[in-house]
Design a protein around this nucleic acid. Structure first.
Lengths: 171, 171
DNA sequence: GTCTATATACAGATAGAC
DNA sequence: GTCTATCTGTATATAGAC
C-alpha cells in the first residue's frame, strides 16, 4: 500500500494521491486501506519513516564505495528508480504539497548527507558545490516525474561532470 | 489577484492555493475572482505566462551583467523574493501538484537559460555544472518556502562558490 | 464588475455488516 | 481483515441579484 501511494505521488503528483486512488491501486477498498493506515497522515508518515531508514543504509554504502563517497553521491543522485529515489521523490511531492514533516525530513536527510561528506571535501564552498549539484540532479528528476528522461547528464557526460566536481571539491 | 495566488502557492503550498483563499487574500469574493479568471486553470496559466515574460527580461539582464553571465546567473539563483523568483517558485508548486503546463514551462525556462549560457562555458560538463548548481539553489529555496533562510550559501560563502564554479566552467 | 447563493463533485473519515 | 454505505467538509464552478 505504501508502494502504491508512492507510485501515485511520483507519477501523478500530490493532488492525485488520494486515499481512494491509493486503495484502488493497491487492490483494496478504502475501508481496507484505512484498517492499516488509520488516516492520510499515517500514510504520509509511513513514506517519511521509510525514507529515513533507506538513507541510513545509503550513507553506509556511500562511505564504503570503491570510487569514493563524492562520486557515489553524485552518481546515485541520478534517478535510477530504486527504493531510495522513489522515497525521496514521494517525500518531495508531500513537501511541495504543504506537509511540514516531509519538508523537515528532506532537510534532515540533506544534513545527514552533508555531515557524511564534509570530511571528504576541501572547504565549505566545495561541500556546497557537491551538495548543490546533487540537489540539482534530484530537482530535475523530480520535475520529470521519474519516468521521462530529463535534462540530466548520463553516461560519459556524467563521468565528465563527476571529474569536474571532484577536481575542485575533493579534500 | 495573480500576486495573491502566487503568495499562497509559495507560502502555504499548492493544496492551500484555492480559489476561495485567493479571493480572500485579494480582497474580493469568489465570484469577483471568477469574473477575471474564469477557471482555476486560467489562474494557473496567468502565473505561467507571467513567468515566461519575466525570464525574457532576466536573460537580457544576464547577458549585460558586469560580473558576467555565469556569476549573475548563480547569484540570482538565490531567492531574493523578486518577481521572477516568486514566479518560478509558484510555478514549481503548480508543477509538483501535477500541472503539466507548469512542468513544461519550467523545462522551457531552463532550456532558455542553458542556451544563453552555453557560449560562455568550456564544454557540456561545465554547462551542466553551472545549471545544476543553479537548480540546486532553487530547489533548496523551494523547499524552504521562500521565507525561512535555507541551507543556501550567502555573502562570502556564495562568492567562494561562484569563484569555484567559474574556475572550472568558464569558457 | 462585484456580490450571495447554490449546484456538483470529491476529499477524508466513520459505522457496521460479513 | 475487508467490504459497502454514509457522514461531513470543502473544492470548483454556475446563476442571477445588485
Amino acid at each position: 500500500m505504501l508502494d502504491a501511494f508512492e507510485a501515485i505521488l511520483i507519477d501523478e503528483g500530490e493532488r492525485s494521491a488520494t486515499m481512494d486512488a491509493t486503495s484502488r491501486a493497491a487492490g483494496v477498498s478504502k475501508g481496507g486501506l484505512l484498517y492499516h493506515f488509520s488516516s492520510k497522515d499515517a500514510l504520509e508518515s509511513g513514506v517519511i519513516e521509510r525514507l529515513d531508514a533507506l538513507v541510513t543504509a545509503d550513507i553506509e554504502a556511500m562511505m564504503d564505495a570503491d570510487e569514493g563517497p563524492i562520486a557515489y553521491f553524485l552518481r546515485t543522485s541520478v534517478m535510477e528508480n530504486d527504493p531510495l529515489d522513489r522515497a525521496i521523490l514521494a517525500t518531495s511531492r508531500l513537501a511541495q504539497g504543504g506537509n511540514a514533516s516531509a519538508s523537515a525530513a528532506l532537510r534532515r536527510v540533506r544534513e545527514r548527507w552533508g555531515d557524511a561528506l564534509r570530511p571528504h571535501t576541501k572547504d565549505a564552498a566545495s561541500l556546497d558545490l557537491v551538495m548543490l549539484v546533487s540537489d540539482g540532479l534530484y530537482f530535475n528528476n523530480a520535475l520529470e516525474g521519474g519516468n521521462i528522461p530529463g535534462p540530466v547528464p548520463r553516461g560519459t557526460e556524467m563521468d565528465a561532470l563527476i571529474a569536474l566536481v571532484e577536481a575542485s571539491a575533493r579534500a
